[in-house]
Design a protein around this nucleic acid. Structure first.
Lengths: 204, 204
DNA sequence: CGTATGCTCAAACGATCGTTTGAAATGTCC
DNA sequence: GGACATTTCAAACGATCGTTTGAGCATACG
């Protein structure tokens, strides 16, 4: 394998953008390869099929995102001394930081689409590869919210997930004022989401 | 126009089901007309185009849904004596009742898809036809939550909308136990959603 | 140099898409 | 019953889709 992986990366970048804009079906390989400046056949050569390309788009971002989330959670220690807000921060902040580095926002839109489309193949792929992260956070929430029954907890986590995915896909993202730095604005948004999620999870 | 609107209705029913399952692009007119038991050309004859059919699927359900919502809101009186929970009930209950009458759940999935797909044409259609309902509820929320700035309020309403749409699209719907009646279960779910939304909206 | 090996390219494959057409069937009204 | 409008139907239209093919190009290695 030579270092000519530039074609692969250009395809992945263009795929992320077009999948976010037009959906997995809506974005054709011809549009995609034209935007990437590569030959049409390059997708099937490098990825095998369009479906495999979709999975690779997810893998590239989610590997990094979930590694960050687990690292943030681990940093809180395993002695159950962390607060609900701290655990939520470990879950939310990496997603928002991702969405502010090159084209990350587009990926959150791709993710929101994947949730809305009840595609079983994609579901299974996400569950098999990244389910352990969700399980680890759920265990923390269960410890922090002992007054909730298991179905009640799952139900609330699902609602929070829906809210966060919806928000971070940029649908109604608060616009940054000119007198606020990008970094400060992001921290502000993180605090908004944390407080909203904490209220929804822990209300009596 | 004769009463042979059975073809029209069969198309609309099959469209709702297939759009929910495979998306607007994923569901072809050939699958759709085959499921409805009508001729392929019937869609373009009765609706003009596939896009017009999509709009008609939305119109049929949303007209009823939003009429119910406004009626429930009006029933609370216009003297601002209603509680936050009552206003939320006026917004949430009609949606859940819709989702429990024939194929209504499927429509909520269609709606969730429409939110995830950032299709501008569909956005504008929804905003132009049903924006006044959202505006009326927002005004009520603003009165009930005077401690929130306008951006803060919009931001929270958006998060709540995301959570509700996600939940009602059936993605993580709580399963009804056998010893609970359908009606009791629905009322239980309504209360869950109301309390979650109230906590997310009104937290300090 | 010769020959593998990894990669790119233009061209074509069969399939499926939304839409249109014109004739046949059905219903409506005097 | 005949004239007219409405609705259904099979067939075809051009366009676009994901994928495959086989030749051409580059680089690496003996």
């Amino acid at each position: 394998m030579t270092t000519t992986s530039s074609t692969r990366d250009r395809i992945l970048g263009a795929a992320e953008q077009l999948f976010a804009q037009r959906g997995f079906d809506g974005a054709s390989l011809r549009q995609l390869t034209a935007a990437a400046g590569v030959n049409l056949a390059a997708v099937n050569y490098h990825f095998g099929s369009k479906e495999k390309l979709v999975e690779e788009v997810f893998r590239r971002r989610l590997d990094a995102l979930n590694a960050d989330r687990l690292a943030a959670l681990a940093q809180l220690g395993n002695d159950h001394s962390a607060s609900l807000e701290q655990v939520l921060a470990a879950y939310i902040r990496p997603a928002l930081e991702l969405s502010h580095e090159g084209n990350g926002t587009l990926f959150m839109r791709v993710l929101a689409r994947a949730f809305a489309e009840h595609d079983d193949t994609l579901r299974r792929f996400l569950s098999e590869n990244y389910g352990h992260v969700m399980r680890q956070f759920t265990a923390e929430f269960a410890y922090l919210l002992p007054h909730l029954s298991k179905p009640e907890l799952y139900w609330r986590i699902d609602l929070v997930t829906g809210a966060l995915t919806h928000a971070m896909s940029g649908f109604g993202m608060i616009q940054r004022k000119d007198d606020v730095s990008e970094q400060a604005h992001r921290e502000q948004t993180v605090q908004h989401l944390i407080r909203f999620a904490a209220a929804g999870l822990s209300h009596p």
